[in-house]
């Protein structure tokens, strides 16, 4: 690609959106490193603990059946967006939702509306939801999670 032609950047097709995806759920050992990574995702203000984690690891009714991980699967018509009265949750361009905390009144509608129980309640009553930043995938030691391009 020649650099000089100023038209090229405009004509370039936007990269495929990236999202957090499950590669192989059977490999989940329930270690929860993703939850703690999610808490550290903000470089300016990382946290120690899981209050703001938008991802949860849990056993499947006891660890004898293994473990699983729960987070936003980026549905096409997110019910959480439909029930948000203040516009704090809006559809994200690349799938999933964006969350503007300053607009959120902590009504909890989104937590109840999520079909798969993937929005969690913070201690201040506001939602903790995955925004598909992909930070946790870097810390998944067993190849369960990946951050990769998916068709929009």
């Amino acid at each position: 690609m020649s650099s000089g032609n100023f038209l090229i950047p405009c004509a370039k097709k936007r990269a495929m959106p990236k999202r957090l995806v499950i590669k192989d759920l059977e490999r989940c050992v329930g270690c929860g490193l993703c939850m703690y990574a999610c808490a550290r995702r903000s470089a300016k203000s990382p946290e120690i603990g899981i209050d703001r984690s938008g991802i949860l690891t849990t056993s499947l009714s006891g660890f004898e059946r293994g473990a699983t991980v729960i987070f936003c699967r980026a549905c096409e018509e997110p019910p959480c967006v439909q029930v948000c009265p203040t516009g704090a949750l809006t559809p994200r361009r690349d799938g999933g939702v964006s969350y503007k905390e300053e607009l959120c009144i902590g009504c909890g509608n989104c937590i109840r509306a999520c079909n798969i129980g993937a929005i969690f309640e913070r201690s201040d009553g506001k939602p903790a939801v995955c925004v598909h930043c992909g930070y946790c995938a870097k810390f998944c030691p067993h190849g369960v999670l990946a951050f990769e391009e998916v068709p929009a």
Binding site: R40, P46, D51, R122
Partner: peptide, 14 residues
């Protein structure tokens, strides 16, 4: 338990 706290030095912590 579902709580968090902040480290004293954010960058150093990560």
């Amino acid at each position: 338990g579902r709580g968090s706290y902040k480290p004293a030095d954010a960058g150093g912590y990560r």
